[in-house]
């Protein structure tokens, strides 16, 4: 089993006729994801391989029964794309696009929340369930393997790093979720942690955070109060200078807050082991759960 997605999830790709959209739609299909349609306004009636393309999300949902969507449209159009998907009744929206204005997300988030829709991202790699053979996003499928570890991360490539180490150790994954590096994200650590806690197939969780904001501190308090499953963490950015935006819009130490040290201290105080370097993420989890390859 898994969280948010499974073998029955029916996925649309918004922006399917673009370079990234078509490439990753094919990769998703190759993995086993049920990509039932694509949406590009003005390209309705055409096809990408065998995938039918529609002019609007509502047409696509009506024709295909899709319940999830993966958004690749350029950043200036993401607000529209997300709101259109909400309006069409899609229940899971994964927004891969990087560079969405913060105020667009402030406008979108209350609408998404009110509609009871799960939005993951933007600026994220998406999610993958190896046992459900469902991938929505851009994560490299080959490094994943079915298993019982949940992974949740603010960083794409660090997620891959962690997953590859887990797989190398023989620790497969129930679901890996990249929640994205933007200051306003559709889904936060706590919601994913709760889902992993409730998922009978997840036995332990790897949490990957970075400097900026206080999401990791909140997550640490949540783990202590509400989780019975073991959680380990890694925090990127010990060497990041204050006041500089480290690539991700959300990764910035401001006013002395959001440093790696304070996050690591807080995680430790709440009983969460933190890997010393990214190279130790897999080993830290293995040690925590008493796993030997």
């Amino acid at each position: 089993m898994s969280i948010y997605v499974d073998a029955n999830t029916r996925v649309l790709v918004q922006g399917i006729t673009g370079g990234a959209g078509s490439y990753h739609a094919r990769q998703m299909v190759a993995y086993g994801t049920k990509v039932v349609g694509g949406v590009t306004p003005g390209k309705g009636g055409t096809k990408v391989d065998e995938i039918p393309v529609f002019d609007s999300v509502s047409q696509a949902v009506k024709a295909t029964g899709a319940d999830a969507t993966c958004i690749f449209v350029p950043a200036p159009f993401c607000k529209d794309a997300i709101l259109e998907a909400v309006d069409a009744g899609v229940k899971l929206i994964v927004c891969i696009t990087e560079g969405v204005p913060v105020l667009d997300m402030l406008a979108v988030k209350p609408v998404v929340d009110r509609a009871g829709v799960r939005l993951i991202g933007p600026n994220c790699p998406g999610l993958i369930s190896p046992s459900g053979r469902c991938k929505i996003g851009i994560l490299p499928a080959s490094i994943h393997q079915p298993g019982h570890i949940g992974v949740v991360s603010r960083s794409g490539t660090l997620t891959y790093e962690a997953v590859a180490q887990l797989t190398e150790l023989g620790l497969g994954q129930s679901t890996a979720v990249g929640i994205g590096g933007d200051p306003v994200a559709g889904t936060g650590f706590i919601e994913v942690l709760q889902a992993f806690q409730d998922d009978p197939d997840t036995e332990a969780v790897v949490l990957i955070g970075e400097i900026g904001g206080s999401a990791e501190e909140k997550a640490a308090a949540f783990v202590k109060a509400h989780m019975t499953k073991p959680v380990i963490a890694f925090i990127a950015g010990r060497t990041a200078p204050p006041g500089r935006r480290m690539g991700h819009a959300g990764a910035i130490i401001s006013g002395g807050e959001g440093t790696a040290e304070s996050k690591i201290k807080c995680l430790n105080e709440n009983g969460i082991d933190v890997a010393e370097t990214p190279a130790d993420i897999g080993a830290t989890l293995a040690k925590r759960i008493g796993w030997r390859k």
Binding site: F234, A236, G237, G247, A251
Partner: peptide
Amino acid sequence: VNGAGLAMATMDTIQHFGGSPANFLD
């Protein structure tokens, strides 16, 4: 490096092993 998180983590790891990063580059 590719990816902001991995780029930060790479700097961190260089420092952990006694080196000093000249830049952040994603």
